[in-house]
Design a protein around this nucleic acid. Structure first.
Lengths: 319, 319
DNA sequence: TTACTATCATACCCTCAGGGTATAGTGAGC
DNA sequence: GCTCACTATACCCTGAGGGTATGATAGTAA
């Protein structure tokens, strides 16, 4: 497949007419017909009902059309952004993050960052905690928000906060009767759903280690690839999952109970290359301190405990 | 530009070596070098530092690399989805929506829909209310969630609920002292920010008409293109904006006060082609009734008033 | 039904973009 | 400064993509 084919197809779909589309594309009509045929052949699917005038798109064609428009738009944006950066009009900051931080302070941080550094092209890449370590070393990202501690000397880490863990429970089950915090021990003998399945080690191991350390044994452990699947299975009454408190927003058709216990927390960790002294890194750290200082509603709502040492003194509680 | 060039560039970026990338692509090294040069020439930007071994990406190159990966992935997904639909394994339902419904019931509806019809490819397209009318007629979407009433006989509409309006106020301003509901009249003499600027008529006109009907005259009206901009300006103390209650989630650094008055509501309207009797349309309507029947927390939290006639009897309160 | 028009598909030719081979140029390490 | 590993340059050749001519057919009006 070829971008040319996408452009040709979108022109035909827009005009609902091969001849006019060809004119608009500044080519003759036969080659246009042929390119569309080749495209349909490659996909193994007919995109256009030709046995009617004006022509109509098939269901597949309509889907393909909308997606093609989006891809083409995306490519234009990509070219523009690359040019801006290449011509030194803009700088790039690539930020890796685990999905759950989307439900915490990350969106606000990004907004603040855009306000404070409008010349910055911010690139957000969803990736797991260990993938962030590799991506930092390769220079694919400049900053990572993860949930896993690591021991790589080239990567500098800051625990930003410890977030309460909650159990996600199916409605109308025994444990869902009460809403008081749940002792970890209550999970003994229950079916547990953990995520992500790979790559390891991951948040799943953090949860499994916690249970093991507290000598809590689930009757069964099911590993799934992502939190959405885990919550889906919970909703289908296939077990219990343990998630960071802020991720409760992801689904409202399951019940959540805070988990009790001094270790029932998951950290949010800021990772960056040791020795990186970019002004944007400094800015991000400052903005994070500002955010905690403002003590926004989501902090309390999500039962998040900022670390005592944080919030005021720069550099405190790091590494 | 060409997809081939994107594939070539990602291979080089991955391998950090032209020769090995060429092998992996099953072409000779010189043509690969040339394609990358052409790409850089078209962009007018250097993507690769060649004066080091192994080669390194420039800032622009890193940005371009990540974006290119995403675009290529997107294209694969697009091909797969189109094939599935074309081979009748899946059906497509295209849903147009105004941005603010993302903060209401739409995400939950989509989840329910996926559960109830896993064979369905759901395509979400953000568009304004009037754009939805045109898109429905052209068959670009099958379903629209908008906020504007219309009078097109080919489009069937159902008011799903009336949502409270709230005023977005800059922190530390006079009106932000109190948190009690704000009478519309309090907006007299204030700077007002409305959106979207175009295409008209839009939600902006709905608000302006409301104020006019109630004889409330702002000192100044500023039109901006989208709600994010409006809230950004509010945060910068450039005026007051009026938004649907559920959109409060978009920004936490401004203050919101409910607006008082019998007409201070904005409807959420379901649009579809008159005569469309697809089973998925029926399913969506059923799921919406289920959702309201469950009376989820966001309904109350957003001060939404379901219409009395809705929720139980199918077909009631329609059109 | 027929004739007409608008429009898409087919057949066939030609050109140049992209790939190949040979080789020159160059950064990095000993 | 020599060598190795690697990239750029020079030049040739082939086929994908575009052009022209024409056939095939849906829609339409009489």
């Amino acid at each position: 497949m070829d971008l040319r084919q996408l452009r040709y197809f979108t022109a035909v779909a827009r005009e609902r007419n091969f001849t006019r589309a060809a004119e608009r594309l500044h080519i003759a009509q036969p080659p246009l017909s042929r390119q569309i045929q080749l495209l349909e052949e490659e996909l193994g699917v007919s995109l256009i009902h030709r046995k009617s005038r004006p022509i109509k798109l098939t269901d597949a064609g309509r889907l393909f059309y909308e997606q093609a428009l989006q891809v083409l738009g995306r490519i234009d944006q990509m070219k523009d952004a690359t040019r801006r950066v290449g011509l030194h009009r803009n700088k790039v900051l690539s930020i890796g993050f685990v999905a759950s931080t989307l439900y915490g302070g990350l969106p606000l941080l990004i907004r603040k960052l855009r306000q404070n550094a409008p010349e910055l092209d911010i690139q957000l890449l969803e990736m797991l905690s260990i993938q962030q370590i590799a991506a930092l070393k390769e220079g694919r990202i400049d900053l990572g928000f993860g949930r896993l501690k690591h021991s790589d000397p080239n990567i500098h880490s800051t625990v930003m906060r410890e977030e309460r863990l909650v159990a996600a429970l199916a409605q109308d089950t025994e444990l869902a009767r009460d809403i008081a915090p749940l002792p970890l021990a209550a999970l003994s003998g229950q079916k547990l759903i953990v995520y992500p399945k790979e790559p390891r080690p991951s948040y799943a191991d953090q949860i499994l280690t916690l249970l093991q350390d507290e000598d809590v044994r689930p009757s069964e452990v099911l590993e799934v690839r992502e939190i959405q699947t885990a919550l889906g299975l919970v909703a289908a009454d296939s077990g219990i999952s343990i998630i960071p408190a802020s991720a409760r927003q992801m689904r409202s058709d399951v019940l959540y109970r805070l988990i009790d216990g001094p270790r029932a927390f998951s950290p949010v960790i800021l990772n960056h290359r040791a020795g990186d002294s970019s002004r944007y890194l400094v800015l991000v750290k400052q903005l994070i301190r500002d955010m905690y200082a403002e003590n926004p509603p989501w902090l309390e709502a999500n039962n998040i405990h900022p670390l005592p040492a944080e919030g005021g003194s720069p550099g405190a509680a790091e590494n």
